[in-house]
Amino acid sequence: MKTILDVDGLSFAYGRKQVLVNINFSVSEGESLGLLGANGAGKSTLLWCLLGLLRGEGSVRVFGERPGASACRRVGVVFQNPEDQLFMPTLAGDLTLPQLNRGIAPEQARAGAVEALGSAGLAACAGEPAMHLSLGQRKRAAIALALIQRPELLILDEPTSELDGGSVRHLVDLLRRLPVSKLITSHQLEFLAKVTSRIVVLHEGRIVAEGPAEAIVSNQELLLRCGLI
């Protein structure tokens, strides 16, 4: 299978504080990879390096290119806080804007936005601003926003943080239905086991384990050592 994301020997430090040390992993086309780590393990920093927002030592290749505007056009990202992505007065407006920016006609862009919101279960909220919705709905709207750009790789940073059980269930259903490759960071074992096939475990900036999702989440000794249970 074709490799779409390749990380080789990536290290990163904030000043003198080493946050990532010699990170190596890859994501293949169609694969769902989980990035598991406790708070402060370096997951978000790693994502920012993958997207070219931070530059570390080592090599990162996204679709064979260095991360930047060109490669990131093929990547959809859902941030931990969806308010950083949704800023228009209505959800439909949020989903229309990136399409207009790509030169799609307004009517087609609006229809696309309504359809995307419908598939995220948010058709009734199209005319509302993001701030009037629950956090679970905002997360789903941010996913719809990422998907409307037809990404080949979807990156989600802590998608279940602050969500209740029902919202997590909705999110699991939505993610399972998506046919794109996914890279999902989380510290929630059960959630990652449901939506990914392979998991990489990050602990204090280093990869300490990698393997099938079921094997990782059942390894109690590893999870205890990494502060995950």
């Binding site: 920012w48 927002l53 941030f79 800023f87 990136p98 926003l145 750009q149």
Partner: peptide, 15 residues
């Protein structure tokens, strides 16, 4: 921090 994240999100969205 919020400004930094917001800019990053818009940059990634190609806006």
């Amino acid at each position: 921090v919020r400004a930094e994240r917001f800019y990053a999100a818009q940059w990634l969205g190609g806006i």
